[in-house]
Amino acid sequence: MKEFKILEVKRSIFENNDRQADLLREELKKEKVFLLNLMSSPGSGKTTTLMKTIGALKEEMKIGVMEADIDSDVDASTIATSGVKVIQLHTGGMCHLDADMTKQGLEGLGTQDIDFAILENVGNLVCPAEFDTGAVKNAMILSVPEGDDKPLKYPLMFSICDVLLINKIDVLPYFNFDIEACKERVMKLNPKIQVIPIASSTGEGMEDWYEWIRTQVRQWNE
């Protein structure tokens, strides 16, 4: 019988990715690029919110967008009409992006003349929460029709985000969505999170969101 030995590894399965993510953040800091990872379920209004945001901020800062999807370039084509730099990332069946894919995406986008890069992650509330993309901050959109119980169902996603946009508040009268209860659930998971109710289609609340971005970009470049 061959002799064998037990090698203690004791490494977090995410360690590799976490390390790459930290390296990416260091590079972004040097290059003065603020990278935001935007996550949500499919249909929560990510692309609409993004289009409005670009329209409002593109005169103030140079914006670049990375659209991640399992397949198709529908969203990238929409964003391209806004006039900012955009590239499509295909995850090839994967349900999330990791730090390495994000790094490749940034290389494709070219960060030399970008102040504010946005990564539109795959529409999914589970897997993207597990993988640090290397973004400076994480944002998520929860829309009113999805229900105020989502923080209970996807606690990890809510606990890793720095800001939560509650979108489609213009349809609140038609849904049984309790903003205060939702906020309370979110704050319990993540006391530091900022919650901003918006309606990206009507523009309601969007100024608060723009202000959040301005502050973050400024602080990152200080």
Partner: peptide, 10 residues
């Protein structure tokens, strides 16, 4: 936990 605990190897 989500850890690679050990390898048994020759």
């Amino acid at each position: 936990e989500f850890i690679i605990k050990e390898l048994i190897c020759f």
